[in-house]
Every structure is written in structure tokens, then in C-alpha cells.
């Protein structure tokens, strides 16, 4: 299981990268943390002729406060996300998600940008950025653009990135006061890809849910926002939250796809159970925080 031959290029500026893309097109492949790409290359399911290492590109690292948002460089590793005081303060959901991702030896190398570009349907981060209403900042031959996370994921391993484009950062709005967030997943074994998972955000004003974003992963062909389910929560009093309408809406609005171990019916069932449990957990944590 050895990768097919390739030329490795460590680029130091965007212009150099664009030249390579111009010359090689789809045969050139960007490597970030490599935690999903390298196994695919080892099995020769991915066989780029040029491997572009972007670790040296300027502006892809770091986690910074931009005022009303946190800008996370695409090359920020999971461990950086976990250890960031800024994120802990302003977007705790990201730190909570990292604890569920794979294992420590993967978290040390895997990057947020690589993860989002790979778009595994059972991965946590694509759901997290949608729940947080983040924007994916992209740079390519045509310049820079920014896409809402909810529009970025197009299908299994398919994202809104044109040839030559890369993710440069993810911009996550700071959590407003009164926000509750939580992430849960059902896995066969610790660190496995989720059989069903949810990353939920509830914005609470005066004890009532003013806005809700429920992102599900490991259920459909991509991480998805359950908008109808979220709508059933808006206006409900948090302390007396009834999850049943959300579960019902969720069951009808999502199209589960099977994985190797779970059929669509199981996925639909599991995401319903998860929704109830995660909402209950969020409500109970909020009670404790205020109690």
C-alpha cells in the first residue's frame, strides 16, 4: 500500500500555487494535515501527480479576534482549536467538538481547513461550522470569496471549491450572550466516525429560544442543517422545551443514507434519539449554569 509517484512542492506564495494549478489542473492536489488524503493516496484512490504542501503559505495559520468574529486559519490543527483561549471563550462548541474527533495522534496533525475541504459526511466539523453559521473563506485564481458554511457542502466529499481554490480560513461569529451549544454523537467505538451526530446551537432570550441551528452529521450524504426541526424550537420556553416536534420534523426533512453498519431507518431513528438527548442535555446544562 504505497502511494503512486508524485512531485512534492512546498509553495511559499499564492502565485506559485496558482501557477502549478494552471499547469496541472486536477492532477495537482493540496495537502494540509494529510490525515484523510494520505490514506487515500496509500490506497491509490487519490493519485495526484503534484502534491502541493501549503504549510508555508502566509495567512493560513493562527486563530485571531476580528471584533465580532473569530478567524481560524485553515491550517489550524485540532489541538490548536482545543487549546485556543479565544475559542474557549467565544465559541466553546468547537472545543467540545474536538474532543470527539478521532484520537490524539490524529488531532495533532489534522486541520480544520483540510477537514472541511474533505467533507466526510460523518465528520464533526462540517456540522459544527454550519451550526455556528460560520463562513468559509476561499482564495483562488479569481481572488477571494466567502461562502456561508451551509452552502459549502454539496455532497459526500464534494464542496464548493473550484479548481485552484483553497480554504484560507473559517470565520466564526462570536457567540452572543444567552447562547447554548452542544455536540453529541453515537459511535460504535470512541473516536470512530459517527453513526449519527448533532451539533446544536440555541440562542435564548428571556428564557425563550429566539433562534436555533441544528446541524446533523453521519446521517445524510453530507452534514446538513435541519431547518424545519430548528423552526419548531423557536419561540419555545427553554425550561419547558418539548423536543418531540423537532424530532418529528427532523424525521421528515432529512434523507438518511446508509453507511457500512447502519441502514437509513437506523440513522433516522438514531438522530431522533440524539436530538432528544442533546436538547435535554443543553437545557440541563443551562439550568446548572444559571442555578
Amino acid at each position: 500500500m504505497k502511494a503512486a509517484p508524485f512531485d512534492y512542492v512546498r509553495v511559499s506564495c499564492f502565485e506559485e500555487m496558482q501557477e502549478i494549478f494552471a499547469a496541472h489542473g486536477d492532477d495537482a492536489q493540496v495537502i494540509a494535515g494529510g490525515q484523510s488524503l494520505i490514506p487515500a493516496m496509500a490506497m491509490r484512490m487519490a493519485r495526484p501527480s503534484v502534491l502541493l504542501d501549503i504549510a508555508g503559505l502566509p495567512g493560513l495559520s493562527g486563530i485571531e479576534d476580528t471584533g465580532d468574529a473569530i478567524r481560524i486559519g485553515a491550517m489550524a490543527r485540532y489541538v490548536d482549536l482545543r487549546e485556543s483561549a479565544l475559542l474557549a471563550t467565544h465559541v466553546p462548541l468547537i472545543r467540545d467538538a474536538v474532543a470527539l474527533i478521532a484520537h490524539e495522534a490524529i488531532r495533532s496533525r489534522g486541520t480544520i481547513g483540510g477537514n472541511l475541504a474533505h467533507a466526510d459526511p460523518a465528520s464533526e466539523m462540517p456540522a459544527v461550522v454550519q451550526a455556528l453559521d460560520a463562513r468559509i473563506d476561499i482564495r483562488g485564481p479569481e481572488g477571494q470569496r466567502s461562502v456561508p458554511a451551509a452552502e459549502f457542502f454539496l455532497g459526500t466529499y464534494a464542496v464548493d471549491l473550484a479548481p485552484g481554490e483553497i480554504i484560507v480560513s473559517v470565520t466564526v461569529p462570536k457567540a452572543p450572550a444567552g447562547r447554548l451549544s452542544g455536540i453529541q454523537e453515537f459511535v460504535r467505538r470512541s473516536g470512530d466516525y459517527a453513526s449519527a451526530g448533532g451539533a446544536f446551537v440555541l440562542d435564548v432570550e428571556n428564557g425563550r429560544i429566539a433562534a436555533a441551528r441544528l446541524a446533523c452529521f453521519g446521517v445524510c450524504d453530507r452534514a446538513v442543517l435541519a431547518e424545519q426541526a430548528a423552526a419548531t424550537l423557536v419561540g419555545q420556553e427553554l425550561a419547558a422545551l418539548d423536543p418531540e416536534p423537532a424530532v418529528k420534523a427532523l424525521a421528515s426533512e432529512i434523507e438518511p443514507t446508509a453507511d457500512l453498519h447502519n441502514g437509513p431507518a437506523t440513522k433516522r431513528h438514531l438522530i431522533g434519539v440524539l436530538t432528544k438527548r442533546l436538547l435535554a442535555d443543553m437545557v440541563s446544562r443551562s439550568g446548572k449554569a444559571h442555578g
Binding site: 490514506p39 467505538r189 470512541s190 473516536g191 466516525y193
Partner: peptide, 23 residues
């Protein structure tokens, strides 16, 4: 796991699940 046609579906240790320490 096999498909009905006899294709082996688990070719990695991420697909073929074995006991790990946590469980």
C-alpha cells in the same frame, strides 16, 4: 462484510471494527 455479489466491503481497519481500550 460483503455485498450480495461477493465484494468485500471492509478493506480498512476503519471499516472492520475491532475491540479498542475504551470499550
Amino acid at each position: 462484510l460483503y455485498s450480495p455479489e461477493g465484494q468485500l466491503l471492509c478493506g480498512t481497519m476503519a471499516d472492520y471494527l475491532t475491540p479498542m481500550a475504551a470499550e
